[in-house]
Write a protein that binds this DNA or RNA. Structure first.
Lengths: 320, 320
DNA sequence: CGCCTTATATTCAGGTAGAGTATAATCGGA
DNA sequence: TCCGATTATACTCTACCTGAATATAAGGCG
């Protein structure tokens, strides 16, 4: 059997067929002016990235090196997102396979140390259908919905037709289903499958039917993965504070969460939750910046990270 | 600046320095006789794995190919776990870096199609401190606790000492903290750091102080990652059913969850939850196999997967 | 001074989770 | 044949969490 043949190749680690090029890609997120932003480099819409090299001690340190070199931002909090390889990445025509290991990083714009060729882009420029803070965006009902239904009805058999309609309804909250902000990646994949985003139409001359900037290679997909992960995570881990200045008001904190989640939060419930879990402590100062009653300033209680599992640090995301 | 130098290397994808060997590793899980098992190959404690090759269409299909070839088990449900590279993996002395992309697979033992050199091992053989179904195992209080305190007190400064004690207490539930079954990976990493597991002592002649089989390379760490992921996931997604036969009683379902979680569940609450979320439907038959009142047989309602997010499919893990 | 804006406090109803208790059906053995 | 062990199933009770609404206080500004 060819079992043995493969075993032999397995034992020759220098074999060219098995070698791959490994890229590290970062989704670096910051929030300012209630707008969630992602760090891009150059003129094109490209995430910071670079090949894993032998001198990198680890995947994380390799990533930090590349991002700092390309953007001037030293990274704090990072976590691995996903490893891609089956995409129609640039290396398809090469002999070598390209693997992309992606990371999510949370930081603040002020952390930049030097001028650089990088810039911050609102992530809603790439995903305009994801911002529901002012209600469901018109493009969802007016553009995406009819296009997705059209796509579903274009299936060859009834079963597929129904299944496509169901998937679209779940992902986008059609037919009185609730909008679930965590499904960013699923929505993007659906639009890709329906050929409604630019990436799915490369080589075609037709304009993509959906507004929203695309990115180089599969970077928009990676960004979507990062948004999905972050939107899920803020509900059970206090990661928002990585994006906050040292001192902040409770409303600023709420606005930041709302920016990330793309939906509004019920204020009293939000405050109750934050206080209940003792996530913050007063600095003793107040801010009058916003007009109205001066708000107390708070700082994150780093001790909560040391108090074991922050069980139930869920955020009350309003469905109103 | 050397910025330019790196950019140039970046653009020569065939460069040897950037090429890496990519391994696919699978944590294949099944439960039988109320014991969670992992699939291993050969005589040694090794997870199924093999190098990613050009003929694999995707990471997933490469993994499926390797597992089926090495064990005879075709895989159903799989999900990506984590990508490792910074370990002191076998390739440290080689010129080439070794990357390991790991996957979690859920299946049933009966799915084997052919005799093979693989075998099933209880995962508690590798992690004996993780099974709390019969209460806290004696080894936790009698062996791990004193050894971890010893390790903590061996630190050079007071701050580190306190921090180590705190981490150990959180991970293992010392000092009246609750036991959190999801922290399997953290516990293993802590024991590794404290040099209480065999992998941390390779090259040493001293016997490892903690019982529990070790595995080849960093496979026990990968298994720990899989256990952690699965224990978290069963609380909010109905993945347990991938491990169940087509028809089962509610108690069998409960015992399976308990086997995975390593702790007991309050029976009435478990049933209430399953019924509340309509995860199952009656087959109409009953089973008298267990003695006592014949239990109704149920099957998984696959429709729930199509009903959008299975919000709140949490499992009531008793803290008693 | 009155109005607007924001902060802060309180309340209320519904749901869920944890935990305990009660009753019914079947089997094995005395 | 009856009793107890074993299992299935049903019901209850309480504490807490969540969503949502309302009320009051403090400052800025025309």
């Amino acid at each position: 059997m060819d079992d043995r043949a493969k075993r032999i190749r397995r034992n020759s680690p220098g074999g060219k067929a098995d070698a791959a090029k490994v890229d590290l890609t970062a989704v670096v997120v910051a929030v300012s002016n209630n707008e969630p932003c992602v760090l891009t480099i150059g003129q094109t819409d490209t995430l910071p990235s670079g090949p894993l090299a032998l001198e990198h001690r680890s995947l994380q340190s390799g990533l930090r090196t590349w991002v700092e070199e390309q953007t001037g931002h030293p990274l704090g909090y990072i976590e691995q997102l996903y490893t891609f390889a089956d995409r129609d990445r640039a290396g398809a025509e090469l002999e070598q396979r390209v693997i992309s290991i992606s990371y999510l990083a949370l930081t603040r714009k002020e952390h930049a140390t030097a001028p650089s060729k990088s810039s911050w882009q609102s992530w809603y420029d790439y995903f305009p259908w994801e911002d529901h803070r002012a209600g469901t965006p018109p493009m969802v009902s007016n553009l995406l919905r009819p296009r997705l239904i059209e796509w579903a009805d274009g299936a060859y058999d009834d079963a597929t037709r129904l299944e496509r309609r169901r998937r679209a309804a779940i992902a986008f909250g059609f037919d009185d289903r609730p909008w679930n902000e965590d499904l960013t990646l699923k929505r993007y994949e659906l639009l890709y499958e329906a050929a409604l985003v630019e990436e799915a139409m490369r080589g075609s001359t037709l304009p993509p039917p959906v507004r929203g900037k695309s990115m180089v290679s599969d970077h928009r997909r990676i960004l979507g993965t990062g948004i999905s992960r972050l939107r899920s995570k803020i509900k059970y881990r206090p990661v928002v504070f990585e994006l906050m200045p040292p001192a902040f008001t409770l409303l600023q904190l709420q606005r930041t969460v709302e920016a990330l989640a793309g939906r509004l939060i019920h204020k009293p419930n939000f405050r109750r939750l934050i206080e209940q879990h003792e996530l913050v402590e007063e600095t003793g100062e107040t801010s009058t910046e916003t007009g109205g009653w001066p708000a107390k300033l708070y700082r994150f209680r780093h001790a909560v990270l040391e108090e074991g599992e922050v069980a139930g640090a869920k955020l009350p995301l309003s469905r109103a």
